[in-house]
Design a protein around this nucleic acid. Structure first.
Lengths: 332, 332
DNA sequence: CTGAAAGCGCTAACAG
DNA sequence: CTGTTAGCGCTTTCAG
């Protein structure tokens, strides 16, 4: 099998040096129009295209980045992280970056890939272990966090405007006349949980609404757990809440089940709001009001920050926030 | 910034040649225990690890594969393809392959990456355009299809046992006493649609059940469309069907909505079955009976086939089928 | 604006 | 079992 044409073949056919061929492909402006043309023609005839491996070798840069999802169990199957992945993929392609995707379960592999000097930058999604982060930093790999923040570390983070999202929820419910608003919380992610929780407490206060300890319930990330938690919340509270703010859409689905079991109609007897505006919102009955998060944009921003880091830019924004928007549907 | 140690540094420190160092890392068995030890020690001291780029350059192989999702609009956000991706990721890591993920929207980029001799094999998910396939074949890139088959092309395909899944559905419904079973079809994917459709018709016949043209309805891949189609189906049929087999879980969610609007209770008045056993099944009310497809296994098989292809093995299984299993929940 | 030449870090014959 | 050596395909000074 005849191997692909190299820069030498093009050089020979076009009658210019290999250096010029190289320049033609990497810095076209630096070669005269006419010779550039000759080179392109020869390349076309030979069906040549530069070998990225050789290029990386000579340049000592790989232009390769990785996206690692740090969430136990959940992986690319998590809609949220998949959305971010989408954005990263698009942006990475535009920036001519190669993208490797992996989960934190095999982070040792990813670290070893970085060790081999293959990966120049990494986007860590979710709750990245500090050990993992410092491992990368020690290896001079650029790091960007998404949906997470680490105090002290001078790392760019990309997050959604959780606070605004929660405020919109409370404002919306308050405008609908709700006073007793409860929250179905859960450990989706340490950072996210904390943000949404505090935003809820603050938001309630600033609306002049009371937030009793009993009105906030923790649950695990599955339907069974959220259903059980919601049921307790709806049954045990002195005065049953008239609205339920759920940490995410799956939790809201659990709340739906609890409500149905207790004979509560949504939204007449109970308003329910989710978070993330995932694909299940329009599938639920009634359709679920939720806070939309632009995951793709988050992914794109990650790549922008990473690129800036790789270019050695100074004064990189350390915290990039993507706006959130309440999507009102029939559950409120 | 001091650059990473190279094979030369290790060679010097350990007192053996670079060739031996190289062997120690790629074919440990070919070097004497004692020297191997020396090399490892020196490497540890220097914190050396082989540079994969240089290795690829010298070996003229990249060990790099790509997974391309060929589905308009839908991408890694599609749970089904994300599941396959999961499996591919795991298997690729085990096989020390590097994995690039991309969507067909930017297939030109992927093709150009392959052109640069970076990609040795590619897994095409969904309805890959013939042009894309031949583009790769022309460039000697190994191709494996998943969730798709192309007549004539001698390409390994990995698919789910759609026929068995559908049979199980019909068997289950028939056992529950259903005679009037309708199908909510839709163009999820040409291959899948065709398989499930034919399996339905055949399955009905072999159970001695009648399948009238009116009992099969097409719809688009969104809830609105499936809801409308389901509504027509449930309203217009001479004798309303008592069970509805839906092409996938989203379609089933649409059927739920139609049923509710028409005042039909599930499962008492209407049994509903989905396909794919996606994460929404347990969220719906009542929980949706669906056919489980082991996407991860499919992804793993893809990598196995691709690896075989890359190793130049002969007699590679051209059609690999992953079993499917009906998961009975409360909707039937 | 272009050319000559020295690598980038590793592998793979081929000898020994 | 180990060493020598010639590349892999491209970039990048440094001259001209």
């Amino acid at each position: 099998m005849a191997s692909s044409p190299t820069i030498y073949d093009v050089s020979r056919l076009s009658g210019v040096s290999t250096a010029t061929v190289s320049r033609t492909f990497s810095e076209p402006d630096r070669v005269k129009e006419s010779t550039r043309r000759k080179v392109y023609d020869a390349a076309a005839v030979l069906n040549y295209s530069p070998n990225a491996i050789a290029r990386a070798m000579a340049r000592q840069r790989t232009d390769r980045i990785a996206y690692i999802i740090c969430k136990k169990g959940a992986t690319i199957l998590d809609e949220f992280y998949a959305g971010i992945c989408e954005g990263i993929m698009r942006a990475a392609n535009r920036a001519e970056h190669q993208l490797l995707v992996s989960t934190a379960e095999d982070w040792r592999l990813t670290v070893s890939a970085a060790e081999s000097k293959q990966i120049e930058g990494v986007i860590l999604g979710g709750t990245a272990e500090p050990a993992l982060i410092s491992e990368f930093q020690a290896r001079k790999v650029a790091v960007v966090l998404v949906n997470n923040r680490v105090a002290g570390a001078e790392l760019p983070s990309v997050v959604a405007d959780e606070a605004s999202g929660v405020e919109q929820v409370i404002g919306h419910l308050a405008a609908r006349g709700h006073k007793k608003i409860a929250m179905l919380a859960g450990r989706v992610n340490a950072y996210v949980m904390s943000e949404r929780y505090h935003a809820f407490v603050d938001g309630m206060r600033s609306c002049g609404l009371e937030v009793s300890p009993a009105s906030i319930r923790m649950c695990e990330a599955n339907v069974e757990s959220t259903e059980a938690a919601a049921e307790e919340l709806l049954r045990s509270a002195e005065e049953r809440p008239t609205a339920l703010f759920c940490i995410n859409d799956v939790a809201a689905a659990g709340a739906y089940k609890a409500a149905r079991r207790l004979g509560l109609r949504i939204p007449q007897d109970l308003a329910v709001v989710g978070f993330d505006d995932s694909s299940i919102c329009p599938l639920l009955e009634p359709e679920l009001t939720s806070v939309h998060v632009d995951c793709r944009r988050m992914g794109e921003l990650c790549v922008e920050r990473l690129t800036a880091l790789l270019h050695g830019e100074k004064d990189i924004e350390l915290l990039s926030t993507v706006p959130t928007e309440l999507i009102v549907r029939r559950s409120t």
